[in-house]
């Protein structure tokens, strides 16, 4: 029986934990209290699973629990900002510690070799799983940030009855343009506004691709039956637009949001007058 070699580890759980935490601290990937609880639970569950192992570890329900636990730990380590190296070291140091104990326990070199081989197989498999979990944890963070950014980056403001404005901060790529268009058009429908002002003061540069996205937004707005004014054209933007040969003549462009608003008032036949003091 192969598993006999490894089942002895359970009795040395405490010394294994000591060596492991020592190795973790040396490698610099330990962050204290939370770790310790997690690590204790993992070691205990893992060693119990080893002790009761009968046959292939892939089929063992106990190991499934261990795998769930280590996947949870890795994904939370990923979210807490551990580096991939630190994440991998969590299990490699555990393997080192276990090997050290094993070499003390087993005297026969053939048996020791077999035990290490099996331990390697089990832990290497888990290391791969932790990597996947770690990546998923990081990807969750990224996708949540992407959602947050796209949500906060497209605020549509009702500036006047029938006029909405959308200041764009940052670069306009195609996926962002989609969100801008969706939000702007939906807001136009919801508020029944007939004029939309797209302010690009916060857009660092306008190249032909960005210009194309702007033109698309204007076209979509017009298809809905509203007019779109682009404001916030800085001198350098005007220069690049002309140098790149981009045709914006079909679009109403204004230098500032204020002048765009004035144009919008004119289009709605509104006038702003200063109140006379009697």
């Amino acid at each position: 029986m192969q598993n006999n070699f490894l089942s002895g580890l359970k009795e040395h759980e405490n010394s294994l934990l000591t060596i492991w935490s020592q190795l973790l601290i040396e490698s610099g990937s330990d962050d204290g209290a939370v770790e310790e609880e997690e690590s204790k639970e993992f070691a205990s569950l893992f060693l119990s699973a080893l002790a009761s192992l009968n046959g292939k570890f892939q089929d063992s329900p106990e190991f499934e629990k261990v795998e769930d636990l280590i996947v949870g730990i890795s994904s939370s380590r990923g979210k807490r900002g551990f580096s991939p190296r630190e994440n991998a070291q969590y299990l490699t140091t555990f393997k080192q510690a276990s090997s050290q104990i094993l070499s003390k326990l087993i005297k026969d070199s053939e048996e020791l070799y077999q035990a290490n081989l099996q331990l390697n197989e089990i832990l290497d498999n888990m290391t791969i799983m932790t990597f996947e979990a770690y990546m998923r944890g990081r990807e969750d963070v990224i996708s949540r940030q992407v959602d947050e950014i796209s949500e906060i980056s497209t605020p549509v403001i009702t500036v006047w009855d029938g006029i909405v404005a959308l200041p764009i901060i940052g670069t306009l790529d195609s996926s962002r343009t989609q969100i801008v268009m969706e939000n702007l058009l939906q807001q136009i429908v919801d508020t029944g506004s007939s004029i939309a002002i797209l302010d690009i003061s916060g857009v660092p540069a306008v190249d032909s691709l960005v210009a194309q996205h702007l033109i698309k937004t204007v076209s979509a707005t017009r298809l809905m039956g509203a007019e779109c004014i682009i404001s916030g054209i800085r001198p350098e933007i005007a220069q690049t637009v002309v140098h790149l040969g981009i045709d914006l003549t079909g679009i109403i462009t204004k230098a500032t949001l204020a002048s765009a608003l004035k144009t919008a008032f004119d289009m709605l036949q509104l006038t702003v007058v200063k109140r006379k003091l009697v």
Binding site: M181, E182, L185, V189, K216, S219, A220, R222, L223, G225
Partner: peptide
């Protein structure tokens, strides 16, 4: 509808001559 307008623009149709 907004989704229809965006899709038309992506498709490359701006319905020139149509007033909305």
């Amino acid at each position: 509808q907004p989704a229809v307008a965006i899709t038309l623009v992506e498709l490359g149709l701006s319905l020139n001559g149509v007033i909305s």
